[in-house]
Simulated scan of single mutants.
Amino acid sequence: MNETAHSFETLLKRDAAAIEGCLRDILSPTVRGDEIERPTALLDAMRHGVLNGGKRLRPFLVMESAAFAGGNREAALRVGAALECVHCYSLIHDDLPAMDDDDLRRGQPTVHIAYGEANAILAGDSLLTLAFDIIAAPETHLPDTAKTALILALARASGIGGMAGGQALDLAAEVSSPDEAGIVTLQAMKTGALIRFACEAGAIIAGSNPEERQLLRRYGEKTGLAFQLADDLLDLTADTETMGKTTGKDKDRGKGTLVALYGMDWAEETLSRLVAEAGALVAPYGEKAKVLIEAARFVARRTH
């Protein structure tokens, strides 16, 4: 690993530790204003689904895109924690028997295995709701206009026209394999939308002009496509122990992926191109773009 990659890994771990601390505080047993009680079994299931490691790449992108745009770090930390709650809710629900039916996540039993299906459903529901609570709360020191913009952008990225809709398309792909355009749409919704939000959120937090917001949004779109392509490659090349989740399931279920459609050589070349395009978008900003450029490279070279 070269010096730049090593320093990036250090930064990723630093931000992940900050996010972990923020999430532990948010998911503590302490009852917040207007809450009546935090049921222990439900809270334990939520904590199991969130506080179980992970690279925290999405909140990292929130924090570093905000740093790029000159935004408040503490506000970005809380928005990143909100995004991670949405991401973890999606994993809990995706793992359910009615969805992808997985027993392992990040090397541990999935929430429905550890706490039962009903608690897993409620944990996901609660995490999704909590995400918007975090952004709207007075502890997130942002103007109301920024909070409204973040809530709208996150809702659009995570709902019927984003992640949840992408999961619906993914389930349909088990029955009828989509063509290239269908696969690109599915992946842009299921995976790419939250990564796009992570990067665009930095501009919203910073109060950037429309041009800078659009720039970070486009960077997030490219990075999201690269992330999914790398994930599809890892599903074929990595083992379950390394990934911390079951691998090879897309192939076993006959799901269409761009790797399956065009082969690994094409996928690796396209992945390199997407990383270069993402980096080129922010490169004119010089030194302050280095972390985002390296983040796109990390997405491609990750091993789990």
Rank of each mutant, 00 (worst) to 15 (best):
E3Q: 12
M243V: 13
L216N: 10
E287I: 13
F68L: 11
A66N: 10
E20P: 01
T129H: 06
L57G: 03
A81S: 14
A155G: 15
H93D: 04
G182N: 05
D144F: 10
T237A: 09
M46T: 07
T240C: 08
Y285C: 04
D252R: 15
G162K: 05
R24G: 11
P210F: 15
L281I: 15
C199M: 02
S208L: 14
R32D: 09
T240Y: 03
A260G: 15
C85L: 13
L281T: 14
E174V: 02
N52Y: 00
M63N: 11
A146F: 03
G224H: 04
M189V: 02
A230N: 05
A76K: 08
Q187M: 03
A296C: 08
R32F: 05
E294A: 14
L186M: 15
L128N: 11
Y219C: 11
N72D: 15
T247A: 14
D250V: 04
H93E: 08
R24E: 14
L281C: 13
A18E: 10
T110P: 04
G202P: 10
R105I: 09
R38D: 05
N72K: 13
K190Y: 01
I151D: 03
R78T: 04
L281Q: 05
A69F: 08
V175Q: 13
M163P: 03
T110G: 06
G21V: 07
Q228I: 09
N72L: 12
I26G: 01
G182R: 04
A283R: 13
V299K: 01
H48P: 00
G279S: 11
G248H: 11
R105G: 06
C85T: 06
A118K: 10
L194R: 09
T240I: 07
F60E: 02
L122K: 04
V282T: 10
I205G: 05
H48N: 04
L225W: 02
A123M: 08
N119T: 06
N2F: 02
T191K: 06
E268I: 06
D95F: 10
V111D: 00
L169P: 02
D125C: 08
M243Y: 03
K245D: 01
D25N: 09
A67G: 13
K222T: 01
P39K: 12
G21H: 07
L61P: 01
I204A: 10
A81V: 11
E35Y: 08
K290R: 15
L128Y: 12
S208R: 10
Y262V: 02
A76T: 09
I204L: 15
P178T: 01
L12M: 08
P143D: 15
R73V: 10
E212N: 07
A81M: 08
P284E: 11
Y285G: 00
S158A: 15
A201S: 14
V175W: 00
Y285P: 00
S177D: 00
K55Q: 08
S7I: 07
L194Y: 03
V291Y: 00
L27N: 01
G162I: 11
E294T: 14
D232Y: 08
E139T: 14
E139R: 12
V62H: 08
L261C: 12
F60T: 02
R58W: 07
L91Y: 03
S65R: 04
V184E: 13
A18W: 01
L27D: 05
R56N: 02
D95M: 07
